[in-house]
Design a protein around this nucleic acid. Structure first.
Lengths: 206, 206
DNA sequence: CTATTATCTGGACTGCTGGTTCACTTAATT
DNA sequence: AATTAAGTGAACCAGCAGTCCAGATAATAG
């Protein structure tokens, strides 16, 4: 009876191996092909497993993409939470925001197709049952950005403006420039917007 | 021979009738259902025509969505080009921009599902062969915004920043707020960003 | 080392999509 | 009324995400 009550039912060895194979195959395919050409069947074939396995592991296309995104975002999350300023705690909000967007632009430029695939997967018929903003990475990023904005300019609509700034990453004209390696240009544009918004209290939002 | 050399091969009466029926049916369906539930088959059925007719008329799903968007945007385009200030010519760039984004927010809030469907259609497999930014409405909007930014602040990256500002409209968290009728809130956020960017030359982008 | 069992696996299957085809219908013209 | 180019739409196609379940396999018990 009570012998394995709290036994965490760890993933079997072959399951773990296949999970990695699938993640690495998806990563590789997304590095070389636009997201709409990377079907789950192709990922499964490239990983050397059956399609059912992919769904068994990740639940849905969106689940796989979220997992891949989470892998990439983990390092950035660490740097924000406990790393050195200006990305980490300690610097002025303005500088932290500029540093954050610079980092995100770089991340996005290195994973352009993944970002697009992730976005696209969230809109698909079946996956749409899952709440859209429930993505933990997005929630974390949004909380970080809106918190810093509110800290520097309590009178503006930080929550909404944070969505707006983060939203730009998913826009196709921006994404294509990121893929082309122009992340520094984008970072500069972010800096312009952020400094205009936060420096020298440039009139309230009303 | 030369009897109808330059005859513009006008659309036949039944074709024009069906074109309208299709547009109105798509409009109606998008008013009531999220875009991923509005398939071309459903549009065709609602319009009382066959699926082939829809494709014959509009070429693709994206073509239909672009046509619907164009209908909505035409009025705004007129107001910008020849209407009274601040939307039309004559006012300061800052005020014209604020007026433009206010108008666009209202437009988007009244056509939320259409905006999303349009965006979504541009990413679909087959339609992806068409260049993404070739959408004339987007081009016009982008030209307007980047022109005004450049006029007020020649030293910033107006072209990219215009993409960023316009991009926010397509972001899901923003779109859902627009659908909920919060267009005034969004307009205020736009105003905050635009005034921060353009008023009192808040340091260059470099 | 064998037996047991719960988990994992993968290919066949479903239901749906955007898009194509082409024999047939119909509006416009003579 | 005859002609004809354009319009039409149901059947069709390829490809997708996601489901199913009989059989394979890793972990565990004896």
């Amino acid at each position: 009876m009570g012998k394995n009550d709290r036994m965490e039912r760890r993933e079997r060895a072959d399951a773990a191996r296949n999970r990695q194979a699938i993640l690495r195959a998806a990563e590789e395919l997304l590095r070389r092909h636009p997201p709409e050409q990377v079907s789950i069947e192709r990922v499964a074939a490239a990983a050397g497993v059956g399609k059912g396995t992919v769904f068994h592991r990740f639940g849905s296309r969106a689940g796989l993409m979220v997992e891949l995104m989470a892998e990439r975002a983990r390092e950035l999350e660490q740097a924000i939470a406990t790393g050195p300023p200006p990305l980490g705690p300690g610097a002025e909000p303005v500088d932290r925001l500029v540093a954050f967007f610079t980092a995100v632009a770089l991340l996005a430029s290195r994973n352009g197709n993944l970002m697009a695939a992730h976005e696209h997967a969230m809109v698909t018929r079946k996956a749409a049952e899952t709440p859209r903003e429930a993505n933990p990475i997005y929630l974390y990023w949004h909380g970080h950005v809106s918190g810093l904005i509110a800290e520097a300019r309590p009178e503006v609509d930080a929550e909404l403006i944070a969505h707006m700034l983060l939203g730009t990453l998913h826009m196709e004209p921006i994404a294509s420039r990121l893929r082309a390696g122009e992340h520094e240009r984008l970072a500069a544009a972010f800096a312009t917007l952020v400094r205009g918004l936060l420096d020298r209290g440039a009139l309230g939002g009303g």
